[in-house]
Write a protein that binds this DNA or RNA. Structure first.
Lengths: 234, 234
DNA sequence: GAGTGGTCTAGACCACCGG
DNA sequence: CGGTGGTCTAGACCACTCG
């Protein structure tokens, strides 16, 4: 492993554990502490800046970026909808989890098999309902979900534990009007504009999931950042 | 201007003009050609890599990334809304282009100055109206737009030609209901769900544009791809 | 083996910020 | 003013790619 990667790993861990807070030691201090050149220190810091952990200001120092609820797209591992999956202190109430036919999911995933394990959940953050989600997972992979307590956790964690490694996905973001049932569940007015995220998930080349998520636009929306703004934009 | 910025500008122009294609001269060659150190060359190349212009491969060389019409989100230079900006054979009809106050744009961009050049356009693809867009560009940068024919082209191209280099931005995607005016313009029903994209654009650290785009969900939506699917997914 | 980009060093000067 | 990060130099060795 390159030195700067090791150093970056070291610093990242320290930040995540809370051992590093507020301000980072200066570059010369880090150079001496780790016995490397300043360029190596800077390379590590550069990496952590692009990952969103650090923010450097000329003349002032390098600072740990406080954790945010809503982070930029480019920092997310699973991008777009990870916004939902990873948002902290989130609670999901499972409305239904069953095995059934799902024509639409089969069509979207390009599969002949129409039997899926379907999980329907309401998702909330800080006591507010923000999303209604229906995930259709292919069989047999999805069967691991039938006996699992996924009220809190991620479907992907359950799949991972069952040996299904989600590697990629496609999200399509659109907008729809709330029908009466959805309006009731999400606590909004009928006909109101909602964000719709359709997701197709893959394990290697195999499609494993089709997911529809309906979001309250005033509770949550998607943020995408592109390019660089000298750390000021967010 | 730092040397590496000048060099990056130089190379970027060369790429856009087509003077640089396929493969870049090697780092030692660039170092000698421009009379700088290799670190400076690498810094410039690093910048253009993050901007999506270049791709470097150890042992092989540094290559100009070919322009693509439709790409997954993660490969996009300007990501999300680039889908709109770059969609082929697109036509925009300019409803208004004027200099005026825009409180909201000023607030969103965090500027005291409230005077903007505001461009309001309807955008269509293949004869169908798909989007209504209002871009508020800061002055004095935006003044270049006042005399420009932007019916076809991109606002960013005009800005670029005027020496304003857009380097970054943030898109926020949400959903709203169509009000009567918007419904009329977009040819849909009042109250219908539309996709709203709010964009903040930056040239370096300076905010240069606030843009609101309303999209017909059945005509166009956003696609984001994450991870890898052995090239099959899209 | 020659050439490429990736990493690393030890120095230097600068612009900027705070006390 | 001293300390910070930003820039820049002139070297060096390495892993990798390709003919």
């Amino acid at each position: 492993m390159p030195l700067w990667v090791q150093l970056a790993d070291e610093l990242r861990s320290a930040i995540r554990d809370g051992r590093l807070r507020h301000r980072l030691p200066s570059e010369p201090e880090l150079r001496d502490a780790y016995g490397v050149s300043r360029a190596t220190v800077r390379e590590a810091i550069r990496q952590l800046r692009t990952e969103g952990y650090l923010d450097a200001r000329q003349g002032r120092g390098t600072f740990v970026v406080p954790k945010r609820q809503f982070e930029g797209y480019h920092q997310q591992r699973f991008s777009l909808a990870a916004r939902l999956a990873d948002v902290g202190k989130e609670v999901a109430s499972v409305l239904a989890i069953e095995r059934r036919e799902d024509e639409r999911a089969a069509a979207r995933l390009g599969l002949e098999e129409r039997s899926f394990v379907v999980v329907r959940r309401l998702r909330g953050v800080e006591g507010e309902v923000v999303a209604l989600e229906e995930a259709s997972v292919v069989v047999p992979e999805g069967e691991a979900l039938l006996g699992s307590p996924i009220h809190q956790g991620s479907i992907y964690e359950v799949l991972e534990a069952a040996g299904v490694h989600v590697t990629a996905g496609i999200d399509e973001v659109s907008a729809v009007s709330a029908d009466p049932v959805v309006a009731e569940l999400l606590g909004g007015a009928e006909g109101r504009a909602l964000i719709l995220v359709e997701r197709r998930t893959f394990a290697g080349a195999r499609p494993v999931e089709y997911r529809r998520t309906l979001l309250q636009p005033d509770r949550m929306h998607f943020v995408a950042q592109w390019g660089r703004t000298d750390g000021e934009a967010l």
